[in-house]
Amino acid sequence: HHGSGALAALHADGPHAGLPVTRSDARVLIFNDWEERKRSEPWLRLDMSDKAIFRRYPHLR
Score class of each variant (00 low, 15 high):
residue 3 G to Y: 14
residue 6 A to M: 10
residue 45 R to W: 06
residue 13 D to G: 10
residue 59 H to G: 00
residue 57 Y to D: 01
residue 33 D to T: 05
residue 4 S to A: 10
residue 31 F to Q: 06
residue 4 S to D: 11
residue 7 L to E: 05
residue 46 L to P: 03
residue 56 R to G: 02
residue 52 A to C: 08
residue 34 W to N: 01
residue 15 P to V: 09
residue 32 N to W: 09
residue 47 D to C: 04
residue 35 E to N: 11
residue 60 L to I: 02
residue 3 G to A: 14
residue 44 L to T: 06
residue 48 M to P: 06
residue 48 M to Y: 07
residue 39 R to C: 13
residue 25 D to V: 12
residue 25 D to Q: 06
residue 57 Y to W: 15
residue 60 L to Y: 01
residue 3 G to T: 13
residue 45 R to C: 15
residue 52 A to L: 05
residue 9 A to M: 14
residue 10 L to E: 04
residue 42 P to Q: 06
residue 33 D to W: 09
residue 37 R to G: 05
residue 26 A to G: 02
residue 22 T to L: 03
residue 47 D to T: 01
residue 14 G to K: 03
residue 42 P to H: 08
residue 44 L to G: 03
residue 61 R to K: 13
residue 11 H to S: 03
residue 54 F to L: 12
residue 53 I to F: 01
residue 58 P to Y: 15
residue 41 E to G: 03
residue 10 L to I: 09
residue 17 A to N: 08
residue 17 A to T: 07
residue 31 F to T: 05
residue 4 S to K: 09
residue 37 R to Q: 09
residue 21 V to F: 04
residue 52 A to T: 04
residue 12 A to Y: 08
residue 5 G to R: 15
residue 25 D to Y: 07
residue 22 T to E: 03
residue 1 H to T: 08
residue 19 L to Q: 05
residue 50 D to K: 07
residue 61 R to M: 14
residue 53 I to G: 00
residue 2 H to I: 14
residue 26 A to S: 02
residue 34 W to I: 01
residue 44 L to V: 08
residue 23 R to N: 11
residue 15 P to K: 06
residue 21 V to L: 07
residue 59 H to I: 00
residue 17 A to V: 09
residue 38 K to F: 11
residue 36 E to A: 10
residue 44 L to Y: 11
residue 45 R to T: 10
residue 57 Y to L: 05
residue 33 D to C: 10
residue 20 P to I: 10
residue 42 P to F: 04
residue 24 S to D: 14
residue 18 G to I: 03
residue 60 L to A: 00
residue 28 V to G: 04
residue 24 S to T: 09
residue 13 D to E: 09
residue 4 S to N: 12
residue 4 S to G: 08
residue 18 G to A: 05
residue 6 A to E: 10
residue 5 G to A: 15
residue 1 H to G: 14
residue 15 P to F: 05
residue 5 G to D: 09
residue 52 A to G: 13
residue 46 L to S: 00
residue 24 S to W: 14
residue 32 N to H: 12
residue 43 W to G: 11
residue 40 S to N: 12
residue 14 G to E: 03
residue 48 M to G: 02
residue 12 A to E: 13
residue 36 E to Y: 12
residue 17 A to K: 15
residue 10 L to K: 06
residue 1 H to I: 15
residue 14 G to D: 03
residue 30 I to T: 02
residue 27 R to K: 12
residue 13 D to R: 05
